[in-house]
Simulated scan of single mutants.
Amino acid sequence: MSETVELFEVGPRDGLQNEATLISAKDKIALVDLLSTAGFARIEVASFVSPKWVPQMATSADVLAGIKRKSGVSYAALTPNARGFEGAVQARADEVAIFGSASEGFSKANINATIAESLERFVPVVEAAKAIGIPVRGYISCTINCPYDGPTPPEASARVAQALHEMGCYELSLGDTTGHAYPNEITAMLRAVKSVVPNAKLAGHYHDTSGRALANIEASLTQGVRVFDTSIAGLGGCPYAPGASGNVATEYVAARLAELGYQTGLDLEVLMKAAQMARGLRGKGTI
């Protein structure tokens, strides 16, 4: 029996949020609906952040209202604070995610708060989610390198991971936000995090700026990680990590995992169609 690896599709949110040209809710819905037929268990489709800072996500409620929800698929939304959480609940997100950083510089640039302040902000969100039974996932940015502070010590990533785990996040997504990590750096970070958080609670989130995301996934597999965030067609980037490219392409990861003998449950033909659609959205400019 082959081992199973889950790919968490984040393209409709993490991928599209960095596109400068506004994409219509209708087009986003079409992409999510196609991805829903590919075999994913989880798809991140929305972000309830201020449209002033991320205008591409201003139609998040419309997207969640318009998609054809497929049984067995959890549709996720990013929620930075209590107001964002309320918006996600009203839009019927199946789960939410909070996002922190392992580096102080990125935390201040991304959410205008220190790491300690950001963790304090997350507590009421997690408590409110627990009260109504909505799962909360935690993102940790800059677990390897920070565009402002330089290299991130593995123990810094472990501290934030432990805090989010103890807070109640069911899974932690560990991000190589700049996309410059090497496999040995990923391995060192994972070993530090695994010393304080159960391995089954971890996921990799690797941007592909330097073309090493697949190698970093393979290094993570040797450490027992079996969940990875991927973005269809490699869409994405980060407005607060200049020069960072998108998350590693879903279709490439699925194909490589198949070569390595892992099962993903994904339909590669559907993924290729979705990748073509996603690439077509770039620069379309319809609102």
Rank of each mutant, 00 (worst) to 15 (best):
E3T: 11
V5R: 12
V10D: 02
P12Y: 00
P12W: 02
D14Q: 07
L16P: 02
L16W: 05
E19N: 09
I23F: 02
S24P: 13
K26E: 15
D27T: 06
V32M: 06
F40D: 03
F40S: 02
I43D: 04
V45I: 15
S47Q: 08
F48N: 08
V49F: 00
S50G: 09
M57K: 10
A58V: 05
T59C: 14
S60D: 04
G66T: 00
I67E: 00
R69N: 03
K70M: 10
K70G: 05
S71W: 07
S71A: 14
Y75V: 05
A76V: 14
P80H: 01
R83P: 06
F85Q: 10
F85H: 10
R92I: 03
R92T: 11
R92V: 06
R92D: 13
A93I: 00
A97Y: 04
F99T: 14
G100M: 06
S101H: 03
S101Y: 00
A102P: 12
G105C: 08
S107C: 13
N112L: 10
A113T: 01
I115G: 09
S118F: 01
F122T: 04
P124I: 03
V125N: 07
V125M: 09
E127F: 00
Y139L: 12
Y139I: 12
C146D: 01
P147L: 04
Y148R: 12
P151F: 02
A156Y: 05
R159D: 14
L164T: 04
E166V: 10
E166D: 15
E171R: 15
L172W: 07
L174V: 03
G175I: 06
D176P: 14
T178G: 14
A181L: 09
N184K: 13
I186K: 07
R191N: 13
A192C: 10
A192I: 05
V193E: 08
N199Y: 03
H205L: 11
D208I: 06
S210D: 14
A213V: 08
I217E: 07
E218G: 09
S220T: 04
T222V: 11
F228R: 12
L235T: 00
A241D: 09
P242S: 04
A244F: 03
A244C: 11
N247F: 05
L257Q: 06
G261H: 00
Y262K: 08
Q263I: 04
L266K: 07
E269F: 05
E269R: 14
G280I: 01
R282N: 08
G285N: 12
I287Y: 12
